[in-house]
């Protein structure tokens, strides 16, 4: 496990400090309430997903074991693989759109000028709205006859406003709406990080005659490396939560053009009422989430934890 190191590390520190530290140490009881709560409402459900994946259950009555039926079905079910592909495409697209935008805006917003402060406070407005509110608002804008799509669709290659109803347009809509919602958050991260870059680095570069672009490439970008990693990983893991946007905006359509994996699971469970098979898809989601979160721990939290551990 990735977390083995901090623990081992603590063991090392522990031996060293034993002689001097006499402060009271809390026992395991302090963690029990949180752990119990977490186990019951997150751990146990995870276990039950695994159990349900070997059952057939239509949501009524009691689940029945059906062996490996669901799993063998997964192998031959092209719709799941298609959903996985759409999820991957959407995740990559969202990352590729959001990262440069948030990076540039964050660096810009890090400046202390008054106009930047005012503009950034407007930038952050989407942060105040729920996914549901945002998706519903965009849906009204996307009406091809009476919404903004009717007026401005031809500027972006949709002269008839048929954006949300075309496979590519719908995928684009999800990317745009997600960016509208989440770029402000990532801008915030970059803004905070940029403000921590020591000014002396820029001063030295200016003395050497480096221009703005070179300073950005050789000072700002390398200094923001950790933030880029953190923000990217948050985006990757967060991409699993685009489900709500998709559910309200496109419902996975048109056809199955935006049918991402969580949406596919939701439909299988709560529209087709195949809870057992949906549990198999859910486990695939967990596997994905775990893989992506291992990235988080490895790249960001991990390094930080190690350094802060020295302080104990």
């Amino acid at each position: 496990m990735t977390t083995a190191l901090p623990a081992a590390r603590r063991g090392g520190v522990r031996a060293a400090e034993k002689s001097t530290d006499r402060a009271a140490r809390p026992g395991v009881l302090w963690v029990v309430p949180a752990a119990l709560f977490f186990m019951v409402f997150a751990g146990l459900p995870l276990l039950l997903v695994a159990v349900l994946s070997f059952t057939s259950w239509n949501g009524l009555g009691t689940p029945r074991f059906n062996g490996l039926d669901n799993w063998s079905r997964l192998l031959s079910d092209s719709s799941v693989w298609q959903s996985l592909r759409i999820s991957a495409i959407l995740t990559v697209l969202c990352w590729a759109v959001q990262t440069p935008l948030a990076l540039l805006l964050g660096v810009w917003a890090a400046g202390r000028q008054r106009n930047r402060a005012v503009l950034s406070s407007i930038f952050f407005l989407p942060l105040l709205m729920s996914t549901a509110a945002i998706a519903i608002t965009w849906l009204t804008l996307l009406d091809p006859n009476f919404g903004l799509a009717a007026k401005w669709g031809h500027y972006i290659g949709f002269p008839d406003g048929n954006i949300i109803g075309s496979p590519r347009g719908a995928l684009g809509c999800v990317v745009v709406v997600v960016a509208w919602q989440f770029v402000p958050f990532h801008t915030l991260l970059y803004q905070a990080a940029t403000r921590q870059i020591p000014q002396s680095l820029y001063d030295a570069a200016t003395v050497d005659g480096a221009g703005r672009v070179r300073q950005f490439r050789h000072i700002t970008l390398p200094q923001l490396r950790n933030t880029i990693v953190t923000s990217s990983v948050l985006m990757l893991v967060g991409s699993l939560t685009y489900f709500e946007t998709v559910l309200i905006l496109t419902g996975g359509g048109p056809g199955s053009a935006t049918n991402i994996l969580p949406q596919h699971m939701y439909m299988t469970a709560f529209r087709d009422y195949q809870m057992g098979y949906a549990s198999v898809i859910a486990l695939a989601l967990v596997a994905l989430g775990t893989a992506l979160s291992l990235l988080i721990v490895r790249f960001s939290g991990f390094a930080k934890m190690r350094s802060t551990l020295e302080g104990i």
Partner: peptide, 17 residues
């Protein structure tokens, strides 16, 4: 038309048209 897949019925998109 061409944009029918963007038109909803539930929210009166088609009815309005």
């Amino acid at each position: 038309g061409t944009n029918f897949n963007s038109v909803n019925y539930v929210n009166d998109g088609a009815g309005l048209l």
